[in-house]
């Protein structure tokens, strides 16, 4: 079943759920380019806050993704499908979750790794187990941990204070118990990755995606809901030690991850129940990493870990065939 589904993907017809299948007119390029457009608000805000260098990081990443995908398909004598936008999304998403000061060579290495190892080593679009953008980011995090956790202040912040580096809201809370005002978190005037700081822009794009049904609403809802509920429980236990649920939702890369990464069609479950399980699992992992782990942020690892159990979730939540007995 799995094989059939993924073969169809190459023919640009998407089947999101196990049989029985209903054919729809949606095509891979249309979905992918819509996702790119819905990412634009976050991209624009990122460039607004972090300047022209952020734009260069994004362009370098997209270019590397497209060139890598095309050359691998050329090498493997497969049809070149870069026009379908999937490589562009990977490049864009990866750039949006990188710090603005990241060196260009690291961007190239990360994007190449994400596309070559995260996607094509598994067989290309539809066969990959993990979200390629997150694989690229994980590789960079493991390779250049200092560069991946050096944050520059936004252009607006630079006007007020003269500082070269800053900390993310999550880092500030975890290590120094300093809270960041919600207005700054919503608007995005905080240190962080290029595309993760402005919550409003991400939510706006994400909602369009959900309304068009290009992403399963259950995943962001259950992911964010679990984080809010679990975060809230810990906050009620000890408000000094643990941040409040709203802070959990708005700070860091959770919004970007919940709307655009966890919902990746290839690497998330294809059944409604599976989507709930996926979101609840990712949310639980995120809270565990944020509150009890060594790192301040855990969106990337929570999604990658849930990606790895997606085939299992699909297997257990497959709807019964009519008349089948247990």
């Amino acid at each position: 079943m799995e094989g059939k589904k993924t073969n169809k993907l190459e023919e640009k017809i998407l089947y999101l759920s196990p049989s029985p299948h209903v054919k729809s007119g949606e095509s891979v390029p249309r979905i992918m380019w819509t996702v790119v457009i819905t990412l634009m608000p976050a991209t624009i805000m990122g460039v607004y806050f972090f300047g022209i260098r952020a734009l260069w990081v994004i362009l370098v990443s997209i270019a590397t993704a497209v060139i890598t995908e095309a050359s691998i398909q050329l090498m493997r004598r497969k049809k070149i499908t870069v026009y379908n936008g999937s490589a562009v999304i990977t490049g864009l998403l990866l750039a949006l979750c990188l710090p603005p000061s990241i060196p260009y060579y690291a961007v190239i290495i990360g994007t190449f790794f994400g596309i070559a190892v995260g996607k094509h080593a598994f067989g290309g679009l539809g066969y990959n187990i993990f979200n390629p953008a997150l694989i690229g980011r994980a590789f960079l995090q493991a390779s250049f941990p200092v560069k991946m956790t050096t944050w520059t202040p936004t252009l607006l912040q630079q006007k007020c204070v003269d500082a070269v580096t800053t900390a993310t809201p999550l880092g500030l809370f975890k290590f120094e118990k300093v809270t960041t005002p919600y207005v700054d978190l919503l608007w995005g005037n905080v240190g962080g990755c290029i595309g993760e700081t402005c919550a409003i822009a991400i939510i706006a794009g994400g909602i369009i995606l959900l309304v068009l049904r290009y992403a399963d609403w259950r995943i962001p809802l259950s992911y964010l809901g679990t984080v809010a509920i679990l975060g809230g429980i810990f906050w009620l236990i000890n408000p000094e030690q643990y941040p409040d649920p709203l802070f959990h939702l708005l700070a860091g890369g959770l919004m970007l991850g919940a709307f655009f990464m966890a919902t990746d069609m290839v690497t998330s479950p294809s059944t409604p129940l599976g989507s709930w399980i996926f979101g609840i699992g990712a949310g639980t992992l995120l809270i565990i990493i944020r509150l009890f782990g060594g790192l301040p942020e855990g969106v990337m690892y929570s999604i990658i870990l849930m990606n790895s159990v997606t085939p299992l979730i699909n297997m257990f939540t497959r709807p019964k065939i009519l008349g089948e007995k247990k």
Binding site: P103, Y105, I109, F139, A142, S143, F144, P145, K147
Partner: peptide, 11 residues
């Protein structure tokens, strides 16, 4: 040259 730390780690 910025070393790729991951290469000398188990992964």
């Amino acid at each position: 040259f910025d070393t790729w730390l991951v290469m000398i780690l188990p992964p």
